[in-house]
């Protein structure tokens, strides 16, 4: 069965004491796809990833990874996973290449194979010229790339990436995205979490939006935007302490209006037309901006909150 799903979760639950971090989620990830969990802090993304990575036992529901049960086949499954955890766990006292050698040995790979593979991976991670540098002083972006290279050392069937670019500057993020794109093109199955909607839009074929341990929506980025938002958004900023007071002024212009602390978001099919209407009514916003709708708008619509706080 070439395209039977690699990961199947049904009613998956994770509890820490009385606290429910993951509250009965259903997920299916198919071979070769790039699947994302999008959600704000504390949504339960890492808890889910750790269960899939077979380092955290589920508290309820069922989970199958690579056709096996993590409760009984943890080591066998982990042998075929690559993991990029949210927080780096490199050996900072060792060199870049030593990190790969040491890690490869954990998968029982012969020394010669590991050294060969390390060369390719350093090439891939654009770290060849740093191969014999100690890890500790490297930049955040380099460490992240090394962590990804390390996660690939066993040629995994699935690569799990928990917030691969959080905390990196924009340039380092783009370098990383470029590397992940390449993996995607080569058919590696990627499962990633993020709270950046642009990252989700760029990297994910399909994603679930998570909030407070639950899945609130599922689909491709395009589908989600089409379903839960209009095509365009008109952002209006007024000279007022409370933008809710200006709701009446824009009545009837948009399908839906969201009130934020510092602006109104008007969900419309045609942003320019809506802007023209605003001007025709003689409203005088301090600023007006027409943009395409993003997953951020989807999230706002579904939960009434922003993704990044």
């Amino acid at each position: 069965m070439p395209d039977s799903p690699l990961i199947v979760a049904r009613g998956l639950v994770k509890r820490f004491g009385d606290f429910v971090a993951v509250d009965g989620i259903d997920v299916e990830v198919r071979p070769g796809e790039s699947f994302g969990f999008l959600g704000p802090n504390g949504a339960g993304k890492s808890s889910t990833m750790r269960m899939i990575g077979c380092v955290s036992p589920p508290s309820g529901g069922t989970l199958q990874v690579l056709g096996m049960d993590p409760a009984t086949d943890g080591p066998r499954i982990r042998a075929r996973l690559g993991v990029v955890p949210q927080r780096d766990s490199l050996d900072e006292e060792l060199t870049v290449e030593e990190n790969l050698w040491v890690y490869g040995r954990y998968f029982g790979l012969p020394r010669a194979v590991v050294q060969e593979r390390a060369k390719e991976l350093l090439e891939f991670a654009q770290l060849t010229d740093r191969a014999s540098s100690i890890v500790e002083p490297l930049s955040g972006g380099m460490k992240r790339r090394l962590t990804i290279a390390r996660g690939l050392v066993n040629t995994p069937d699935i690569l799990l990436l928990d917030e691969p670019t959080t905390g990196l500057d924009p340039q380092a993020r783009h370098v990383l995205w470029d590397r992940l794109f390449r993996l995607k093109r080569e058919g590696v199955t990627l499962v990633l979490t993020t709270h950046y909607m642009d990252e989700a839009e760029q990297l994910c074929d399909r994603l679930v939006v998570m909030d407070r341990g639950r899945i609130v929506a599922e689909g491709s980025p395009r589908e989600l935007i089409d379903t839960y938002s209009t095509r365009e958004v008109l952002e209006l900023r007024f000279d007022t302490d409370d933008h809710a007071h200006r709701l009446g002024d824009v009545d009837g212009i948009a399908d839906r209006v969201e009130v934020l602390a510092d602006r109104l978001l008007l969900y419309v099919r045609d942003g320019e037309a809506a802007h023209a209407e605003v001007l025709r009514r003689g409203l005088e916003p301090l600023s007006a901006l027409v943009r395409r709708a993003t997953l951020e708008d989807v999230f706002l619509h579904l939960t009434g909150r922003s993704l990044v706080d």
Binding site: R76, A79, P85, S89, R150, N154
Partner: peptide, 14 residues
């Protein structure tokens, strides 16, 4: 701190 055990336990090791 360096969380090395987390890295080790993500592999087949127990």
């Amino acid at each position: 701190w360096d969380r090395m055990y987390h890295a080790m336990l993500a592999t087949p090791l127990g």
